[in-house]
Design a protein around this nucleic acid. Structure first.
Lengths: 240, 240
DNA sequence: TATAAACTTTGCGCTAGCACAACCTTTGTT
DNA sequence: AACAAAGGTTGTGCTAGCGCAAAGTTTATA
């Protein structure tokens, strides 16, 4: 975050940006005004690191537009993708779980607009804004649920089922309707998918080719469209 | 929890039970008194289900003595062990993450003494007892860290390394010093270990046999003693 | 418009570790 | 003391999916 550049908009941020986002939805216009006035906005290109695992957690963030990819790197240098965060969600909330440093690295998965606040205002937010803390912890709960599901899947399912499930989750959570199905809403490579499912890009490539042959998906470079979700669900269920 | 039997002790619970346990350590004697007076105590035998995944989360719990094993069961009936909770920790705190039901099943891994409170007092605890909420979320953060570590391990390590790491973590967190090393402090079968590491009891048996031959561990039925932690650490590091 | 860089496909051989199977040992029960 | 039940060991064959390799395609850069 050495190159962090605060870029408050020349025009003030519009309050309607936050009014429908859960952690803020119970608040008055005045409160949202306060919150926005303390925020820093920044636009990021794709593939930019927002913060690194282990950095002191001196800010917390919210995705206004775009997607964040949360990754961890092993001592051996292997990367694994932990999570994708869609717009409207907070991230980098190490403070909420009593951490002084970020537990993982956050990278933009697409162009993105990110709000951030200094961690020092966290406690103020928690006590002053009703619903902020409970909504935040709900999100934390959802992420724990995802992690748990991931562990169970990796422990019990074959590669093909894991990849099918991951892809389905991806289009459910971040899918965009297109002519011939639902498309993952950000650039995604074979390598990325392999880092989400604990396999190799080669295996992913083979799977996608096979699925395409059976009319389940359509993929081009960095794009994946699920054209037959039903079929994928069947694959994910029926043992192989 | 059909067979749940409230058993408040005849003599009141001693305040010193809680004074040194983090979520309560900042509180006055009066406050701890209040908390204990609202608690229900129960002694469980080994292998007893405290609550099931999906049950309405109408109570939250604390391990006073013994260990809790948190498990999840797949639709196909395979069981995987998510976590072990040692004495002094809260569990079943679905409420903290905005859930109405328990996300996993809790079973005693040893004889255990468990305190519990109705979920309805949760909010009262959070607002009335300083440090309660932050300490609780710290624990949540630690558990998330464990889950993450688990995902990374399963994604990147060989079975032997995973099992070595898991065993090391087990003796670090719940180890008891014995004559010839450090022993896992509760009954643990090959099957259990396999459900923690996503492998089979057969593979675990072979690994333990091999390790015993090399003087790293000593195991009898339901007992595992790590006699050479250094050696295990080396195994866990050096790729195989 | 050539060249490089990033991403993808496909083939082939190998092996970690699983499935299956049989048997052994310890502990609990009648 | 006999039997059952739970837990543990060990052998054998098989295969999912990885490692390695080579080549194709698309996009970015000079």
């Amino acid at each position: 975050m050495d190159d962090y550049i605060a870029q408050r908009s020349l025009t003030r941020l519009d309050e309607s940006l936050l009014t429908h986002i859960p952690p803020f939805s119970l608040l008055s216009h005045e409160q949202i005004r306060e919150i926005l006035d303390q925020a820093t906005v920044r636009r990021y290109g794709e593939g930019i690191t927002v913060f690194n695992e282990g950095d002191p957690a001196d800010r917390f963030f919210m995705v206004l537009d775009g997607y964040i990819r949360v990754v961890r790197v092993t001592p051996a240098g292997e990367q694994i993708i932990s999570l994708h965060i869609p717009s409207g969600q907070l991230f980098g909330i190490a403070r909420a779980i009593g951490r002084e440093t970020y537990p993982a690295t956050a990278i933009t998965a697409s162009e993105a607009i990110i709000l951030s606040w200094p961690t020092t205002v966290w406690d103020h937010f928690v006590v002053s804004y009703p619903g902020f803390s409970s909504e935040t912890y709900k999100i934390l709960g959802l992420r724990m649920g995802e992690l748990n599901m991931r562990v169970v899947e990796m422990a019990t399912q074959q590669v093909e089922q894991r990849v099918a499930n991951t892809l389905l989750r991806l289009v459910n959570q971040t899918g965009r309707k297109v002519a011939d199905g639902i498309e993952v809403d950000f650039s995604i490579t074979r390598q990325d998918l392999s880092e989400m499912t604990a396999t190799t890009l080669h295996t992913i490539s083979r799977l996608l080719s096979a699925w395409e042959k059976h009319g389940l998906v359509k993929s081009r470079r960095k794009h994946i469209v699920v054209s037959n979700p039903q079929g994928l669900v069947a694959l994910a269920r029926d043992h192989g």
